[in-house]
Amino acid sequence: MSTARDLMIVALGEAPSRPLERGDLSLALAGAEAYDLLRGEAIGLTGDRLVPRRQPVADDRLLAEAASLVVREAPYERLEDWLWRRGRGLASVYLTALERDGHVSWERNRWLPFRGGRTVLGDTEERRRAAHRWAADEPVLLALAAAVGIRDEPTAADPADPSVTDDAVLTLLAAVHDAVMELEAVRQRKAIEDAAFANVWRGA
């Protein structure tokens, strides 16, 4: 069971509470992978460092790939740095994987003869599993979804469901939330700079 694949399916099937940014989703997917690696005891957290524990036996190719990217030499890698490194373009990677495995197709019509339009989720066991976790209000899945705006956004002081009590998981969810907020701040700064540049050219 891959939390990242379930999160991607939820992202494709649910109406977001705010415009869904692909970069935000990529960071959350990296966080979902880290959560599964924590749960499988493939990694641990010492402070804010990802510490390898054992090589996981994963039947999920992308999760195995994530595990292979964990730095295995001291002083190890900061969780935030790993999220940014692993998260680069990860939403596109998961979308392609779901499409390849037959879980997602693309709506086509005479004006869109090739890949394009909106994605359509197939009625698959994987989709039903993701829907079950979502309907069950699984706290980690909900917290990751909230971080990217798929449901009501959590506050900075409370990025996770209060039923989450594991310190490592709480640290992970807070790191995802902080990374998404940092990315949003970067987008806002760029928008301000672009607007200022445009004003200069208009003579404003």
Score class of each variant (00 low, 15 high):
residue 2 S to Y: 05
residue 3 T to E: 09
residue 8 M to K: 11
residue 11 A to T: 09
residue 11 A to F: 12
residue 16 P to F: 13
residue 18 R to V: 12
residue 18 R to K: 14
residue 19 P to L: 09
residue 22 R to G: 09
residue 24 D to I: 00
residue 24 D to A: 15
residue 25 L to F: 08
residue 27 L to F: 05
residue 28 A to S: 13
residue 28 A to P: 10
residue 29 L to S: 10
residue 29 L to T: 05
residue 29 L to Y: 08
residue 32 A to K: 12
residue 32 A to S: 12
residue 33 E to A: 14
residue 34 A to G: 04
residue 35 Y to I: 00
residue 36 D to N: 07
residue 37 L to D: 03
residue 38 L to V: 07
residue 39 R to I: 00
residue 39 R to E: 15
residue 40 G to S: 15
residue 42 A to T: 07
residue 43 I to H: 13
residue 45 L to G: 04
residue 48 D to E: 14
residue 52 P to Q: 09
residue 56 P to Q: 05
residue 57 V to Q: 14
residue 59 D to S: 14
residue 60 D to Q: 05
residue 62 L to V: 02
residue 63 L to S: 07
residue 64 A to S: 14
residue 65 E to G: 10
residue 68 S to I: 00
residue 70 V to N: 00
residue 70 V to K: 02
residue 71 V to A: 03
residue 73 E to P: 00
residue 74 A to P: 15
residue 75 P to D: 02
residue 75 P to V: 08
residue 76 Y to A: 07
residue 78 R to Y: 04
residue 81 D to E: 01
residue 85 R to Q: 14
residue 87 G to S: 12
residue 97 A to H: 04
residue 98 L to Y: 01
residue 104 V to C: 03
residue 104 V to K: 11
residue 107 E to M: 09
residue 117 G to E: 11
residue 119 T to N: 05
residue 121 L to C: 08
residue 121 L to I: 14
residue 125 E to S: 13
residue 128 R to P: 01
residue 129 R to W: 09
residue 131 A to C: 04
residue 133 R to Y: 07
residue 135 A to F: 05
residue 141 L to K: 13
residue 143 A to G: 15
residue 144 L to Y: 10
residue 145 A to R: 09
residue 145 A to I: 08
residue 153 E to Y: 07
residue 154 P to A: 15
residue 158 D to R: 15
residue 163 S to Y: 02
residue 165 T to F: 01
residue 166 D to G: 10
residue 168 A to H: 13
residue 173 L to C: 10
residue 176 V to R: 08
residue 179 A to S: 04
residue 182 E to I: 01
residue 182 E to C: 05
residue 184 E to H: 12
residue 185 A to I: 03
residue 188 Q to M: 10
residue 192 I to G: 02
residue 195 A to N: 11
residue 196 A to C: 04
residue 198 A to W: 08
